[in-house]
Computed example of a mutant assay.
Amino acid sequence: MKFLESLLNTLMLSLVELFYLVGLLIGVGFLLGVLEKYSNKFLFKTFGPRGVLATAWIGTPIHELGHLLQCYIWGHRVTRVKFLQLNSPSGVLGYVEHQYNPGNIYQQIGNFFIGMGPIFSGIGVLIIGMYLLVPESYQTFREYIVVHISTDVQDSNDLMVIGRAVLAITKSLFTIENMLNPLFWIFLVLAISISSHIALSRADINGSAKGLLMIFFVSFITNLVTSFFGIDTYVFITRLTEYNAYVLAFSSIAILFSIITLLISYVLYKLKTGW
């Protein structure tokens, strides 16, 4: 009976750790997917296929670059890459084909991060673009991260972290000085294009699911071993809480511009069809 109770506790602990490790990242991916779906829907109704393709020139290559970089990180063999194809009969704008050894645990875990790659590359390019094109706004956001995320992480829930981060970015970006700066408008076009193609496809989600199962398996085995030796993993969960606060704060950049893209696409659709 004690063995079954211990096994059940280890199972629950592994599920909690899995949520803290990747759950919020999956949630961000789902939210971005919903925002992108409706943005593209309004753009398609307003301009036809050209409405979606207008942002694909920038957004799709960055999306596929995310997959590609993660393939290299996790040791997968890349067999074929198409960063952008505008005339595909299937409507697929780009893809990365890769192979891996099913018996390699590291490469199996990599499937999750390869599927999630566009979120990493999209957020990364947005941050780099902010740093290069609107450095004052980047500095303000950086200071927000240092002050609030580092000190208030234990006292904030997930929605508060996202909300405060979005508010901080909005205040730092949409200023009179930036409005008069041509580089700001370049960044805005870049950000909208990236956010329009940052969400995961069905194939991306299916690939990530394979890696997610392996992550859970490794976590469960690790917890069994640590439980046997009486090692407390609570500190690890605490660290994951802090990590998630950073994930949410940086993800807020993509969420903000996805919302802006949705609003713009909706207004254009209404202007065409009439209010």
Rank of each mutant, 00 (worst) to 15 (best):
F3H: 10
L4K: 04
T10G: 07
L13W: 08
V16E: 03
V22F: 13
L35G: 00
K37C: 03
S39C: 08
N40H: 14
N40W: 10
F44P: 05
P49C: 13
W57Q: 10
G59V: 01
L68H: 01
Y72E: 10
R80P: 06
F83L: 14
F83R: 01
P89L: 00
S90V: 00
L93H: 00
L93K: 00
L93D: 00
G94S: 00
H98Y: 14
H98D: 01
P102R: 03
N111S: 11
F113Q: 05
F120C: 02
E136Y: 06
Y138D: 08
E143D: 01
E143R: 02
I149L: 03
V161D: 05
I162T: 09
T170S: 07
K171C: 07
E177P: 09
A191I: 12
S193D: 03
S193F: 15
H197Y: 03
I198R: 07
I198K: 04
I198Q: 11
L200N: 13
S201P: 01
A203I: 15
A209E: 15
A209G: 15
L213Y: 15
F217T: 08
N223Q: 00
F228T: 11
G230W: 14
D232C: 04
I237S: 09
T238L: 10
R239C: 08
E242P: 07
Y243Q: 13
Y246T: 04
S252D: 05
L271C: 07
G274E: 09
G274L: 04
